[in-house]
Amino acid sequence: MKVHYKVFDSLAAIEEKPNDQDIEFIIETKNEKAFNKLHEVRKFFESDKVLTDVLFYTLGDHSFQVIVRRDSYTAFVLGLFGFQLIKQIEWRE
């Protein structure tokens, strides 16, 4: 089973690139509202007790690189869903 999701296109554009141990996201926030929502997601993961599960890097122009450990992939996508950057999420075969 794999996680599939749909992004709120008016808020953000999300690209995924899997590596050996991680999945790398490039997230472009399209307005201030989306930027603030992603900031909340970041705050959530940076205040938990695991340091390397989700690493955020700011690229300028309201874009972010996020390196997510494979075991934290679902938690991260759920985080984006929780802060309403993703509108739909489901398990698919």
């Binding site: 940076e46 340091l51 390397t52 690493l55 890097y57 390196i67």
Partner: peptide, 11 residues
């Protein structure tokens, strides 16, 4: 320093 170190070395 530790979180920043993880962040930079991972990058």
């Amino acid at each position: 320093m530790v979180p920043v170190t993880f962040s930079i070395t991972r990058q």
